[in-house]
Amino acid sequence: MSQRARRTALTLVPVLAVSVLAACSTGSTTAEDAPAPKSESEVDADAFPVTIETSFGETTIEEEPERVVALTSDADVALSLGVVPIAIERNDWAGGENGTTEWWDQALADVEGAEEPQLLDTADGIPVDEIVALEPDVVLGTNSGLTKDDVRSLEKAGVPVVGYPGLQWGTTWQESLDMVGQALGRNELADEVEADTQQVFADAREEYPELEGTSFLFSWFDATDLSQIGIYTEIDNRPRILSELGMVNPPVVEDGPDDTFYFNVSLEKAKTLEADVVLTYATSEKEAKKLEQAPLVSDIPAVQDGNFLASVDPADTAGLSAPSPIAIPFVLDRYLPQLAETIDG
């Protein structure tokens, strides 16, 4: 699967026809004109040098990195630790016209004197040359689409890269926070942020007790082929986050593949897809209703029972697929009321 195809499946395989817009990167492509580094927190004593193990091998960072480039959710993670990257990935799915998410904008506004980072277009892969031109001290990609070639090219240019510990886009928010905390020399602060985020989960479980023990299918549908359903596995962060809230995966996921973040099932088996709720995406309420009533899709037991939620605002769920300490409170506040209503029928 190509990187573009994999990212499409990761974020959203469009329901009933959605056009995908590839935006160009914005801002400077030179180090001189890039945003000035900015941080509002201090490094731990004796934090450097530090060596971090990733799926690409060991990465050693000799001293505190000031010029930080952060890919996907690592931009949020760095910001949660008081470090503003000079460049981040543009988000045209959930980021609106400005290419950044609402939770990023809110958190950045709280950092006095912080400048908007350069936005990197990664629709066709990581723009290695553009990143090198920014002369970063480190590239953070713990939950990203970095490839081995990307990492080798960046390292050859003298740029340390903190990649993911397992599969592309398969890193938990806790792992990302720990690794970014090490890379930025802010382990103590990372521990505090993790504790605060865990409290967010605890509060959500208390507010929505109906989540406990409820089984769910987190799915996507291809507009060109409604004969099958794509199902996210336990490797994907969407099911992981819901599991942290007390929900459970149904048998089709438990018995499915354990080496991929999603798999397809023929909708000829729709009646066997037992789960309390079915979760997916749509681009409008009209399209959500059309999908719910589509042949075969409507044969899924939970859909028949009306326990079907098709999110129409990407911002409601983007923080599930790319979770971070600043995205999680936002997405739980937006998504859980809808989910609880779906569970209650």
Rank of each mutant, 00 (worst) to 15 (best):
A327G: 11
V253L: 05
N264T: 14
L71C: 13
S311K: 02
S321P: 01
T26F: 01
E175Q: 14
S73P: 04
V252Y: 00
K269Q: 08
G125P: 03
P329R: 03
D313C: 05
P329N: 02
P14R: 02
W173L: 12
V159P: 09
T54R: 05
V77K: 03
Q198H: 15
G345F: 04
M247V: 02
S144Q: 07
E115C: 04
T59R: 01
L177Y: 03
T317E: 07
F48T: 14
E292T: 14
Q199E: 15
A327E: 10
E53V: 13
A87Q: 09
P323L: 03
D236Q: 05
D316W: 02
G185D: 07
D74P: 11
I231P: 02
L309C: 11
D121K: 00
V277H: 07
A202W: 08
V151R: 11
A36C: 01
P251R: 05
F218M: 11
L21R: 10
P136H: 12
P49Q: 08
I328Q: 06
L108P: 08
D196L: 04
I328C: 09
I52G: 11
A45T: 14
L10C: 00
L12M: 07
K271E: 15
D76W: 09
G96A: 10
S284Q: 07
G141E: 08
E285Y: 06
A275Q: 03
F201W: 12
T100P: 01
E102T: 13
V331Q: 00
G99Y: 07
A318S: 12
P165L: 05
G96D: 10
F330S: 08
E62Y: 03
A9D: 12
S176T: 13
L291V: 09
E116V: 00
Q304I: 00
I88K: 01
I131M: 10
P209F: 12
I61E: 09
D110Q: 15
S2D: 13
D259Q: 06
A87L: 02
V128R: 13
P37S: 02
T142E: 07
A47D: 10
K156T: 13
T122F: 10
S219G: 04
V111D: 09
V252L: 00
A109H: 06
N307I: 05
V277I: 15
Q228H: 09
G113K: 12
P127V: 09
L146W: 04
G125H: 04
N237R: 04
G141S: 01
T122E: 08
P160F: 08
V200D: 07
D313N: 14
P127G: 06
D203P: 08
P127I: 05
E40F: 09
T101P: 05
D344M: 09
L242A: 00
Q118T: 08
E274S: 01
F48P: 14
A114V: 10
V132E: 05
A34H: 09
G319P: 08
F201G: 10
D178K: 14
T54A: 02
P14M: 00
S73V: 10
P257H: 12
E206H: 12
A36F: 00
G256D: 01
F216R: 00
D258T: 11
P37N: 04
S321F: 02
E192H: 07
W173C: 03
V265Q: 13
P301K: 03
L16M: 14
A123V: 05
G125Y: 06
A23N: 07
A190G: 10
